[in-house]
């Protein structure tokens, strides 16, 4: 009996030992986890580096658990990030109201006069300290509409990486241009933008509707949503907003699919992946931010030093995934799972 127990325990330990297989040389091992977990795991040594968005990058930096070895602005200038999407693209009145509120909020954020108030809002929205928020705001570019060229580049990346299961033809479009015309629906933004250019205090007609808006927990990129609510932009256009919080973009896309929300702030990656792969019919009516992500490492100070290390990304096919792949390729490193 004793011998049996001894044998069993030894075997178990041996097996456990086998699991800690070393990452091969010249390779970066990627794992996926939520940015919240990345900060924790980096501190505990479960991972050696991560690629995530703000405020998680700054949190790790301010806590002294990691340092930035490359910002997304360095790696891929003007890369797409968070967007505003809707399933109700054809409800022009509604979309106009939403886009107007978003543009107003973004301009509020980008106005240096409001700096103090914006920081306050950011702290409330994310629950992070002033130090973290201050640091994070430096790296986020709040925008009104994503750079379409860069978005197409992201799409090409997805195609090349084998992430897309369907072609745009299968989704019922003649060509990719056709698809993008529908997917990157800029008409309303252009209209709002020109109206505001004519008259800075232009306000669209009140729509008097309730709209359900999804957003991600503590994602500083989506600050405009919070500011629009706080500054009363939604009420100015007669919108009663029911905010719905989601843990991640994939869940938010499920929300779109199941009709839980009509509008959502979310990452461009899940929006595109699920739009194509699962045919969740959304269109992007505005952009929330560009850049604002970074690679944070515990000890490594350059990409080359990530060889043989474990790096966390928020998901496969995300912008962060490609950011890592881009720098890895440049440094001659291979990505393994």
């Amino acid at each position: 009996m004793k011998r049996l127990v001894a044998i069993a325990v030894t075997l178990a330990i041996l097996l456990a030992g086998c699991q800690q297989a070393e990452v091969g040389e010249g390779k970066i091992k990627v794992v996926t986890m939520s940015p919240r977990d990345m900060v924790e795991q980096l501190k505990l040594g479960g991972i050696d580096a991560f690629v995530a968005w703000e405020p998680f990058v700054s949190e790790a930096v301010v806590n002294g658990n990691g340092k930035i070895i490359a910002t997304s602005a360095d790696i891929w200038p003007n890369h797409p990030c968070c967007v505003v999407a809707t399933t109700e693209k054809d409800d022009r009145e509604l979309v106009t109201a939403i886009v107007w509120a978003h543009v107003k909020a973004t301009r509020f954020i980008n106005n240096p006069d409001n700096r103090e108030k914006v920081i306050e809002y950011a702290m409330e929205f994310t629950g992070k300290s002033r130090e973290v928020v201050d640091e994070a705001m430096k790296r986020i570019k709040f925008i009104e509409y994503p750079d379409e060229e860069e978005f197409v580049k992201y799409f090409e990346n997805l195609k090349r990486g084998g992430y897309l299961k369907k072609s745009v033809k299968e989704l019922g479009y003649e060509s990719e241009d056709d698809f993008f015309q529908d997917f990157l629906y800029k008409d309303v933004y252009d209209y709002v933008n020109s109206k505001l250019a004519e008259n800075e205090s232009w306000v669209p007609e009140k729509v008097n509707k309730t709209v359900r808006v999804g957003y991600l927990t503590a994602d500083l990129h989506q600050l405009a949503f919070y500011v629009a609510m706080k500054e009363g932009y939604y009420s100015q256009v007669g919108l009663l907003v029911e905010a719905k919080e989601f843990a991640n973009g994939v869940m938010e896309m499920e929300g779109f699919k199941n009709g839980e929300i009509e509008v959502g702030y979310l990452g461009g990656a899940p929006a595109t992946l699920k739009r194509v792969n699962d045919d969740v019919r959304i269109s992007i009516i505005a952009g929330a931010n560009s850049e604002g992500s970074a690679i944070v490492a515990k000890d490594a100070s350059s990409i080359e030093e990530l060889a043989g290390k474990k790096v966390a990304i928020p998901g496969f096919g995300t912008v962060q995934d490609f950011l890592l792949r881009m720098v890895a390729e440049k440094a001659g490193l291979e990505i393994t799972t």
Binding site: M33, D37, L164, M253, L273, A312, G315, F316, G317, T337
Partner: peptide
Amino acid sequence: ATSGEGLGYFILVMYEVGGR
């Protein structure tokens, strides 16, 4: 949890990436 490999992880990632 984040595993890097394993059938449960495989299914989860296939779901997240979509269309699979």
